[in-house]
């Protein structure tokens, strides 16, 4: 049988709002397969997002869904998870939402190591507002607000997450569709704050400004630059020039926030 995505999608909500060729739908399918693999109870699963194209994803999912304000997904989600740690909490959002306006909440969620999974759909652009450059836009790239090329250096979102203290960090691409669910499933099962960055395409507002003739060229580009971490170990720095590592980039065990808080409650009650 074909995989039954409909089981996890709210009736009547498709087709989605994303443009032709946008990879967000590919990531959403990966998320659904991951939820199915892990066996999450949708009644007990919150999917939280900010604002932007990627942040429209929760609306399609038949879960407890929370489409918050721009950049605030991690902070809202922290409230949900702290108040009800027995819920599974998944965050979804774009690169601008998560690392510009929401950057502070993002790094602190990483630092706390609260048991949630943050899926960042990195298409290197603010798509919903028409293609302004984001903190993930490569230097020199064209966006509606960088007509002479982007003067800013870009974040490496995965490195940012590792540096800030996330205990599981993975990266995939929308081209490598069959890997997405595996990365997300492993992230959900990891106890701690997990970040899955999916390099994604925005043919409408990024591709056409940056000499990609079609989404096919954009996906081929993702295919060309992606190097699995294992393969990269055998490659020279010269060979890795311009490449992006994919797979599980970082994983460690560290005390998880809500579990630690549960212990704090026990101490407070004992001291009463």
């Amino acid at each position: 049988m074909a995989f039954d995505y409909d089981k996890y999608i709210r009736p009547g909500k498709l087709p989605h709002i994303w443009c032709p060729g946008c990879g967000h739908g590919i990531v959403m399918k990966g998320l659904i397969r991951a939820i199915d693999t892990v066996g999450l109870d949708t009644k007990n699963t919150a999917i939280v997002s900010g604002i932007g194209c990627a942040s429209r994803l929760p609306g399609y999912m038949d879960c407890c869904t929370l489409h918050t304000a721009h950049g605030r997904a991690a902070a809202f989600a922290t409230g949900v998870k702290m108040a009800k740690p027995e819920m599974d909490v998944i965050l979804v959002g774009g690169d601008g939402d998560g690392t510009a306006i929401g950057g502070n909440h993002f790094i602190h969620a990483c630092r706390r190591n609260i048991n949630m999974t943050y899926i960042i759909l990195n298409n290197k652009i603010y798509g919903m507002t028409g293609g302004q450059f984001s903190p993930a836009t490569p230097t020199g790239a064209k966006a509606s607000t960088t007509p002479y090329g982007n003067p800013d250096p870009a974040f490496d979102i995965a490195k940012l997450a590792i540096g800030a203290g996330a205990t599981f960090v993975a990266r995939g691409t929308s081209f490598h569709a069959n890997q997405i669910d595996k990365l997300i499933a492993e992230a959900i099962q990891h106890k701690g704050f997990s970040v899955v960055e999916i390099l994604d395409d925005c043919p409408t507002t990024y591709g056409r400004r940056n000499k990609f003739k079609s989404v096919i060229e954009m996906m081929n580009h993702l295919k060309d630059i992606a190097v699995p971490v294992k393969a990269a170990e055998k490659m020279s720095p010269e060979q890795l020039e311009g490449k992006i590592l994919t797979g599980v980039l970082f994983k460690e065990e560290r005390p998880e926030y809500t579990s630690e808080y549960a212990k704090l409650i026990e101490r407070a009650k004992a001291a009463k």
Binding site: L14, G23, I26
Partner: peptide
């Protein structure tokens, strides 16, 4: 190989 279904962003392909 299922790649068409996996990569369809629009939930428009079902391969059995």
């Amino acid at each position: 190989c299922m790649q068409c279904e996996l990569r369809c962003p629009d939930f428009a392909i079902k391969v059995t």
